[in-house]
Write a protein that binds this DNA or RNA. Structure first.
Lengths: 200, 200
DNA sequence: CTTGCATTTTACCGAACGGTCAACTAGCAT
DNA sequence: ATGCTAGTTGACCGTTCGGTAAAATGCAAG
């Protein structure tokens, strides 16, 4: 880890929790720089603009998830439908631990940013959409496997996957509005009752 | 409508579409004043702070919904489960017409604001929560009526109502991420497949 | 030893931010 | 007519915003 990459990653590390716990517009470059112990000129050496910083932050969050809870949840060794339970549980425990540390439920950074910036920045919207799209694929593959195994009745796996993702985001939104991760615990399991029939 | 209330409502009228289409932090008092043809000093005569303005804006949106689509959808003359269809349809058509006019899907102002500000302003969060809470009650009463009529099997009406609200918000979020109201059309109807069993 | 490049520092830009204030105006009740 | 008050005006506050530019520094290859 040379000095350059260290500075860059210190900036990202300072920005991550701030964008997550507040909002894109509410966090300034100056604050990030102070927290990272970096001068503003240095910041703009690594990031052409605030927009580019948040892109990098999104990438880091996405990687973190993809290699953490998501990889655990969508473990092929697990029975398909249990993977979905696992993912919902992971969301619950993650939000719960954040609340214990931070005092507040912060919700899903992708959902947060989507609602805040997607009318103002199509590049950001596309990036967030791609993340949702990948998540949907994981759900779809899981559902297809479950159908193939006879665990669940045939359904429109693509639409049902999208519905499940929507539900998960909605549950996290409601939980955030109550500042209470237990909402995820109560409502989460109903995700498996969602179903879109295959068109005839 | 005397001059005073006219100024006040012009401010709110200018603020509404801006908070809806962008975000709380991204819309400034100055811009609102210019658009409303009002001086800043006048603004602060009616609203002690930006926070108070957005509270009033939320109230207006809530009233608009309560007396518009929501009143139509939860019409006691309609069979219970059709009311839920109606509400989802209303959300779809509303977002669609916004997109036709504005070029973008703006989503649900309550969901948008919840994710943006609820970690930073507990009063705003409480207000938004109260709106969600009222919506949930409408869903719950509808479900209870459907159960009483034998239209659907018994279930935990409170939790299922909350799940349906979460799903609706999630669907609108995903639709916004795709800037495409058709997502609501495709995913919306699956709301009726959601169900939380009553605890034994 | 020098050249060249990546990085960092520092000072600065104009614009916008939310909010304040004192003076002024208009309408209405006494 | 006078006094009170709600409303309005426009100038102003300090701060922060995202972003820039130039000079200084460190370091490695030729």
């Amino acid at each position: 880890m040379n000095a350059a990459t260290d500075t860059r990653s210190r900036i990202i590390a300072a920005a991550k929790p701030r964008f997550h716990s507040r909002s894109y517009a509410n966090v300034g470059i100056q604050e990030i720089c102070e927290s990272a112990g970096v001068q503003k000129g240095s910041f703009y050496h690594f990031f052409p603009s605030k927009h580019d910083l948040v892109m990098a932050v999104i990438d880091e969050f996405a990687d973190e998830w993809a290699h953490g809870f998501v990889a655990e949840a969508f473990d092929p060794a697990l029975p398909p439908m249990e993977r979905i339970d696992y993912l919902v549980d992971a969301a619950y425990f993650w939000q719960k631990s954040i609340k214990q540390i931070h005092g507040r439920m912060l919700g899903c950074i992708f959902g947060n940013l989507t609602l805040e910036v997607s009318t103002q920045d199509d590049i950001l919207r596309a990036k967030l959409l791609a993340i949702f799209s990948r998540a949907k694929t994981r759900f779809r593959e899981t559902l297809e496997e479950a159908v193939a195994a006879g665990t669940i009745a045939p359904l429109d796996s693509d639409l049902t996957a999208e519905a499940m993702l929507a539900y998960l985001e909605g549950v996290i939104l409601l939980a955030k509005s109550q500042n209470d991760p237990e909402v995820i615990y109560r409502l989460g399991p109903a995700i498996k009752t969602l179903r879109v029939e295959t068109a005839v």
